[in-house]
Nucleic acid binder design. Structure first.
Lengths: 342, 342
DNA sequence: CAATCGCTTGGTAGCGCTGTCAATATCGGT
DNA sequence: ACCGATATTGACAGCGCTACCAAGCGATTG
């Protein structure tokens, strides 16, 4: 009745142990905590493993140890190149480590996020990286009871679930507007697409700066729920000009919109700067090499991803970072498109 | 001595089975092949699972069944937005299915690719998606013996390992040059960055087209191993102008370079078109909304990813696609930047 | 009416590894 | 030389699920 589902060519830990002349459990320890072995056995297991080409079976490990070496990452979009920078940072930080990534796309829905969260947690991830600070109350509750490092990325705010890394979108937008005001611009428009919570806070920053300067006018704001694109930047800019033909500057919530606005200015033979100042957000690579060069708010997306992953790993290795909340800041890159007015 | 490592709150298959009044194995079948159950038991298991909030333990499943529901994806770069489109297609195709993605970055190294391949295969993936057709002989040999669907993406060529989806980079570049020739351009430069195998084949296509027209001149070619960027496009274009000041057109191996070349033309007050024609490659979104609009070769990256993932899934479900090799083609998008000369 | 067939269902064992605890080896101090 | 403390090592059972085989059962067939 015993069917002995022996797998033919596969090398198991037991084989390695036998070749090395140790018990399986000692061989097991070699792969998880080599320091715990005496130098002699360590060398024997190592060479045995190499000789047999042994690769641990992660499923068995996960089942026996009741945890995985997978870090779950929840991001709202794969299209947005902001997230591809963050992801690159995460993957780079994990490269060569024992950990791997499980990526899921929430499509900007916090309900979807909650669903994915439950799915992830059922598999006992080693850690979790989630986007933003706007989770559903249930999501928050779940995450607060889970026993694994969690990093919220993209922005900072009060009461982190566990750890947090990002910057203040409110302050960043406010600083961008401050720059335009300092350069002498007064009728500053706002272009926004896909108004996710972070873009919303950039709008708040814009509103605060304009209100402080007694220049706020709702007519200057054009937003849409449509996902961003360069083409959309041109369209929204045209809409803005129709609503407020007297604008002298425009702040775009991302660089694609800014580029689209620039092209629209060119089509209308509107001088940038001169007749129109443009400031973008994110400081994608092309902003520095366009003609004219485009001002933008630089954010440290790659570093954000990299640090977030490092924070998770360090915590797992027992060296929890001293600071649970890291503000990476931003810098306003002042370029030709927002040169001093007049 | 029995330590009974009972996990407190966790719901296992056995609990679901008990509540549903069936054996664990019947409950198990419900999750893998519901059709095999009678309608009554199916409903009972379903409601029991829902009531308990049961989520299968994938590690246990993988261990017991000796396979996973993970599709390995090997791509050369996370930076390149070409791959982010492909990835988006892959993720979209798998969304809602039982399968998940394990992503790894080969960093344009086929040795790294081989290493990652071995790593992946040790975990028995359900399927594999690999980039390109230039694998090491060992990689090829390994993949040919593995018993899971494999799709090579990005280009088509002879002798697929298993399945293949892409297009001919040679033909696409040749068609782009054909377009410029047809528009009356003669001194057509070539700008290339990060000369990976596919970019190399675009160069081959350029060379073939120019040679056929008896217009080939090595002075017209500028390439570099540096990763691409808009800034680099400007630099390379300047280099090209220095080498061959009499060029009347330039073909760029990707759209970032083309945009950089356009900005460089603007800086030099060189009319596009008029004094200089520009054609890019990939047809990123911004090409259609720049000023002037930029001609490019449209490739179906999202569809490529989506179809590749679908091909894997369909094969796994027993409906292997009729065609193992799918050529998605391309189209030359003729826009202002390559308007007829003169 | 016995033999056969297909559909469902269940029992048993084991996938490959690690947690827990116990046993043994090693070592310094008195 | 003896004792306790520390470093290494090992035995055992079990993580939660599914492969395998067998059996139950009603329907069909000649």
């Amino acid at each position: 009745m015993a069917r002995k589902r022996i797998t033919p060519g596969k090398i198991r830990l037991a084989e390695v142990a036998k070749l090395a002349g140790v018990s399986p459990i000692t061989a097991s320890r070699f792969f998880r905590n080599p320091e715990a072995l005496s130098a002699g056995k360590r060398a024997r297991v190592e060479s045995a493993a190499k000789e047999l080409g042994y690769v641990p079976n992660l499923a068995a490990r996960a089942l026996a140890s009741q945890r995985t070496e997978v870090i779950g990452v929840l991001i709202p979009s794969l299209t947005n190149n902001v997230f591809s920078d963050v992801l690159r940072g995460i993957y780079d930080a994990l490269d060569g480590s024992r950990y791997s990534i499980q990526l899921a796309n929430t499509r900007y829905s916090i309900l979807q996020e909650e669903r994915l969260l439950r799915l992830f947690l059922a598999q006992k991830p080693a850690g979790l990286i989630v986007t933003g600070i706007n989770q559903t109350p249930d999501s928050r509750a779940i995450m607060e009871t889970v026993d694994c490092p969690i990093v919220q990325i993209m922005e900072v705010g009060p009461s982190p679930i566990d750890m947090m890394i990002g910057f203040s979108h409110f302050d960043a937008a406010k600083a961008a507007i401050g720059h335009l005001l300092a350069q002498g611009y007064r009728r500053i428009g706002f272009l926004g697409a896909r108004m996710d919570p972070r873009v919303q806070r950039r709008l708040d920053g814009y509103r605060a700066a304009m209100t402080d300067a007694a220049l706020f006018d709702p007519q200057l704001i054009v937003t849409t729920a449509i996902p961003t694109s360069v083409t959309l930047g041109g369209t929204l800019f045209a809409d803005l000009l129709a609503k407020a033909p007297d604008i002298d500057a425009v702040f775009c919530v991302n660089d694609d919109l800014a580029l689209g606005a620039l092209f629209e200015c060119k089509r209308r033979h509107m001088a940038v700067p001169g007749q129109m100042a443009i400031v973008g957000f994110n400081d994608l690579e092309f902003m520095a090499s366009s003609e004219p060069t485009l001002s933008s708010v630089r954010t440290n997306r790659y570093e954000m991803g990299r640090n977030a992953a490092t924070m998770v790993i360090e915590t797992l290795e027992g060296h929890r970072p001293a600071e649970a909340v890291v503000d990476l800041g931003f810098s306003v890159m002042e370029r030709q498109s927002s040169a001093r007015r007049g």
